[in-house]
Each structure stands twice: as C-alpha cells, then as structure tokens.
Amino acid sequence: MLEIKNLDVLVEDKQIIKNLNLKIGPGEVHAIMGPNGSGKSTIAHTLAGKPNYLVESGNVDFKNEDLIAKDPYERSLLGLFLAFQYPIELPGVTNASYLKQILNAHRKSRGENPIDAGEFLKILKEKSRNLNIPMEMHSRFVNTGFSGGEKKKNEVLQMDLLDPSLIIMDETDSGLDVDALKSTSEAVNKLRDGKRSFLIITHYLRLLEYIEPNHVHVFGDGTIIESGDKSLASRIDNEGYAVK
C-alpha cells in the first residue's frame, strides 16, 4: 500500500524528517506516537503534499505510484485521505454543496457521472446517521462555527464518503471529549474492512484504546526510533517518551 524510503523533508529550510522508513500493508493500522514538536504531523502533511514541505531525498510509493511527484488533489483521487488536526473553515460554502462537489470530483476521476441530487441526499442521510450528525449541519458553512467535535465528525464523514484506501489521521483525538472520542472512533472502526489501511498520528494512548493498531512506532528527532506492537503504546503511556 504505502512504502516510505529514506525520506528527508525540509520545512522552511529546516530539516524536520530525517531518513524515515515505514511500510504499511493493506488492512494494517499503524500508529505513530511522539512528543509535541517531534515532527510527527509533518509526516502527514508531506504525504498529503502540502506546499512548502520540501522532500529533499528519498521516495514514497503509494499503490505502485510515485506519490511525491503528484499534486495534492491527485493524491486524494488516488485514495489518500488526511483527516486534519484543525479542519479549515470555508465561509459561505454550505457543507452539503461542498460534500457533493468533492464526491463528484472523485466520481469524475473514476469515469462516473455526477451524482444526482436525490441519490446524494440518501447517502448523506445514511452516513450522517451513523455519526450522529444532524442533517441541519449540512446547511451550515463548512466547519464555520462548528464545535471541535462537529469538525472531527465532519472529517470522518468525508473519509466515509470518499472511500479512500489509506487514511491518515492527524491528532484526531485532540479537542474531543470522551463521548465524542468514542463515537468518532466507532465510526472509524466501521471503516476497517481488512483492505483499507490507517496511519494514526497521536500524542496520547487514549485514541489507540478505541482504534486498536497492529503496529506502534515511536517518533523522535525526525524519525522512527522504536517500533513494536500495541503494548509499546501502553509502555509509553506509563513511562513517557523520555524513557527508551
């Protein structure tokens, strides 16, 4: 699915990622844990193609394609989804029309016709119900004035809608209370179908108690310094990042 080889990344002339290697197979759930400021979010942004994140060396293979050579929207259409830590507000753009437009962009790239209004509404209702999102939210402007929980649910709704093959979650647990964390995680777990892969970036153990990873990596000084199974996450939680 995804293979990162010897990756070096510069942001504003500063090296943030150093010689990173990571392989994620189909259906696997990987978690990257690390202290604040260790550069773990940089991985997410680099993979999604954020401007000004300069890949200086190394390469990333995604579904047998050279990911780094592609524009951000092409990466999305190829099946890479990044759930933002801080979802962006789009004032004046209603959530429903936005969701329809991004869905149609994906349909178009698959050679399908734009979805008709009735069918879209049906899908939107069904997927919103799964996430306890009231339909009223879709007539509001994208993320504008949304609570932290609503924003994160809206991200999960979009990943459900676009049916990606790799989902990267950047600190999705931040700003969520226990109930919202639980319902969001349940929705994410429903997307685990044995084929779809996940890369979960988090500071805390608590998200990983709901979404169980197959592999846990500890990130420090721009690269992975230790890998293990789920138990590594518990150890970090008890002992902190300083202890190796």
Binding site: A48, G49, K50, P51, D71, P72, Y73, R75, S76, L77, F81, L82, F84, P87, I88, E89, L90, V93, Y98, Q101, I102, A105, H106, S109, Q158, L162
Partner: peptide, 19 residues
C-alpha cells in the same frame, strides 16, 4: 483553505472558485 479543498480531490482552480 486551498490545500484543504485540494486534499479532498479538487484541483487548484476548482478549489479557488469554491472559496
């Protein structure tokens, strides 16, 4: 804003036009 929309599959012009 542009990056957010592009991450969801809209090209640069579609993203700008939406915003």
């Amino acid at each position: 804003q542009l990056f957010y929309c592009m991450q969801r599959g809209l090209d640069a012009e579609e993203a700008q036009s939406l915003i």
